[in-house]
């Protein structure tokens, strides 16, 4: 075997090359991973620990194991005899949040789908302008946008003024600080998240399928629901998730438009780290919120897998 020598030299060179590449890659990834692991992921571990501790008197925690934070969700400890009494306050905040987020998702879908379709059927140059218009608000400050919404739906806001001038109503509609305001605010905040993924899937739609639908005796509505909507499903699902998740964890919208009276989970969590100071309970609430989000993502991933395996 005379050629054994050069072969192994080549193999060694390739090995060396691979090792070099691995080292280079590790160095390149190090800063990003280190920052995110240390500042975003490690804290989640701390949150888990904190949720099993006892609240400190002035915020923070005392290092004493306790499951009270989780018990507190459902029950209230009677001060005198230490028995547990069912308490619906926190559960109802969660349910309210889920309800509002679902409602906003549906609202955004009803507005967002036609918009995405409209854009996808425009000539290419016009599409870019429309997409820019839809994306731009996403890059402007959410706090300021919410504040702007507050300005126009107030009792003295221009919506009420215009409605009154038009003689449609005689006294201002009270929208601000109601569930309706939060609902409107959530749609307004996250509408672009609905439009963009739906647009992305409609843009790929082969419009000869639409023609085939008409050719096979479907009218406009039937073409919409039997051809277009099913084909846009991946975009619709993505859009719904992208609206539901930030909607569920919303903080600014209920804070400003709900006036701090109509709480959602996000505000409740923040409060535990502020005025009411129960860090372990806040940590537990945050983890439950995260668990909800993970459940939604998992269900979606599983459904997507099932869809893929049905195809394959």
């Amino acid at each position: 075997m005379s050629d054994r020598e050069p072969q192994s030299a080549l193999a060694a060179a390739i090995d060396q090359n691979k090792r070099n590449e691995r080292v280079t890659r590790a160095w390149l990834l190090a800063p990003a991973l280190a920052i995110i692991l240390a500042i975003s992921i490690l804290p989640l571990g701390i949150t888990v620990v904190y949720s099993f501790l006892t609240p400190g008197t002035y915020g923070g925690v005392t290092w004493e194991f306790s499951t009270d934070s989780y018990v507190q969700f459902l029950f209230q400890r009677d001060i005198f005899d230490d028995t547990l009494v069912f308490n619906s306050a926190y559960v109802s905040i969660f349910l309210r949040s889920i309800g509002l987020a679902l409602g906003a998702t549906l609202g955004a879908l009803i507005l967002g789908f036609p918009t995405a379709y409209f854009i996808a059927t425009k000539p290419r140059e016009q599409r870019n302008i429309w997409l820019f218009l839809i994306t731009l608000p996403f890059w402007t400050n959410l706090l300021i946008r919410t504040y702007a919404m507050l300005l126009i739906i107030r009792d003295e806001g221009i919506i009420n003024i215009m409605l009154m001038k038009a003689g449609i109503i005689s006294s201002p509609l009270t929208i601000l600080y109601t569930d309706t305001a939060v609902f409107i605010g959530l749609i307004y905040s996250f509408l672009p998240f609905m439009v963009l993924p739906i647009y992305a899937s409609l843009e790929k739609l082969d419009f000869s399928l639409v023609e085939a639908g008409y050719d096979l005796y479907a009218n406009r509505l039937k073409v919409l629901f039997h051809v277009i909507v099913p084909l846009a499903k991946p975009g619709i699902v993505a859009g719904c998730i992208l609206v539901f998740i930030p909607g569920l964890g919303a903080y600014i919208t209920p804070e400003l438009l709900g006036g701090g009276k109509k709480l959602m989970i996000g505000n409740m969590i923040a409060m535990q780290f502020g005025a009411s100071r129960n860090w372990p309970f806040g940590s537990a609430a945050a983890l439950i919120l995260m668990a909800l989000v993970i459940v939604v993502l998992l269900v979606n991933a599983l459904a997507a897998r099932r869809g893929a395996s049905n195809n394959g």
């Binding site: 000869s208 399928l209 023609e211 085939a212 050719d215 096979l216 005796y217 084909l231 499903k233």
Partner: peptide, 20 residues
Amino acid sequence: KPPHRRPINTVFQNYALFPH
């Protein structure tokens, strides 16, 4: 008449089969 009211059917060049 719109296409869905004509008793005429088409075999499309790219077939246009519904993928779903």
